[in-house]
Design a protein around this nucleic acid. Structure first.
Lengths: 197, 197
DNA sequence: CGATTTTTATAATGACGAGTACAAAAAACT
DNA sequence: AGTTTTTTGTACTCGTCATTATAAAAATCG
């Protein structure tokens, strides 16, 4: 049961589905970035008027944080699955970087990572919201490395995170999955070497 | 002789020095990015009024391209000096990445690379202007590698360029020179390994 | 049906963006 | 001194931005 309707709510019914709206808006933000998407862009894409938008999401920032939540839950890289504790660190990080390369270039219209790109926008609040998710992701990487190579955790986390930022940027500038994968594999080789002593 | 004055020009004299103005504006663009700097920000920083600005630079884009020219001539990484043809490729690329790491984090108020960050702005014309300089830089890297390792030139150029994008992004997000240098050296190790066969 | 609740559509608000019209000011040239 | 040239200051244009005031529409509840 996907909760179709259990006795309608009170007033005039919505003409649009907020979840669909979030998905549409997510696409817009991934395609153009937070700054470049106006509320008008969103309302026109949804075929609604500003008051409907504001009643549903509160503000542009409200919509964005909702999109980030959705992305973290369903759309983002499954860090937990890739960085399993028993998996050797070089293997896990290599898989992470390759997964990033593939995802970032999967759709040329929405290249790059929503969170990574969000940390670079010009709106202070939106930037901090994205940054929080980015910090959480880097913390997971660091914890994964530290469990077996504590002395290398900081350095390798920085390296992996920097590479992911580079991959997202290059994906947005038109690099294809093949190019990004080659770069990810070179980076993975550096990690393997660093952990081999 | 630095051309102080050889018979004044015709009309009312300028109250400001355009070269100083370019330097001030360059600082603003490096600190906040093209999109986040308004013409008003620039004119207020210079203590001039809009007509003076437009008469001197034509447009915001005109000022920006002038800044890019200046940057390429004097402020940017000296690719020619670092990537000397006789220098072994792993050594040259390592030096390049380390130089980038140092420069990007040299001043926390203007972290990152003007050109790299410019390729990510939301104004199409400014973006393309910056991209042209970025393409030129990557072409120099590729030519340097190709002279001795033609089969690795594409792959290594992508890797170096991606790393530089990551370094610029991380510099902007607060990473210090020490962190960036550690990442640059890991990347350099990957290059050394790739060229060792 | 009439009251209540919620969403809708129309149209505006005020802030800020890049760029400009106009006339006065400040210099050189004749 | 008067003309010409260029820059200056004031004040404006016009577009876009996020957001909202107002009232009509569409539903449920009594």
């Amino acid at each position: 049961m996907t909760s179709t309707k259990n006795s309608r709510p009170r007033g005039r019914p919505r003409r649009f589905d907020p979840d669909e709206a979030v998905a549409t808006a997510k696409h817009l933000f991934q395609a153009h970035g937070y700054d470049a998407v106006s509320v008008t862009d969103v309302t026109e894409a949804l075929g609604i008027n500003p008051p409907s938008f504001y009643s549903a999401f509160g503000s542009k920032l409200g919509l964005y944080t909702r999109i980030l939540d959705l992305y973290a839950d369903t759309g983002a890289i499954p860090f937990e699955d890739i960085l399993r504790p028993e998996r050797p660190v070089p293997e896990g990080l290599a898989a992470l970087l390759e997964e990033a390369a593939r995802r970032y270039a999967a759709d040329p219209a929405t290249a790059g990572c929503l969170v990574v790109e969000g940390t670079r926008c010009n709106d202070a609040q939106a930037r901090e919201a994205a940054r929080a998710y980015n910090v959480a992701a880097e913390d997971m990487i660091k914890a994964y490395i530290a469990a077996r190579h504590p002395e290398e955790a900081d350095r390798l986390t920085d390296f992996v995170a920097t590479t992911m930022f580079g991959l997202s940027a290059k994906a947005r500038s038109g690099h294809g999955a093949d190019q990004l994968l080659a770069t990810a594999r070179l980076a993975a080789a550096a990690i393997r070497q660093a952990l081999a002593d």
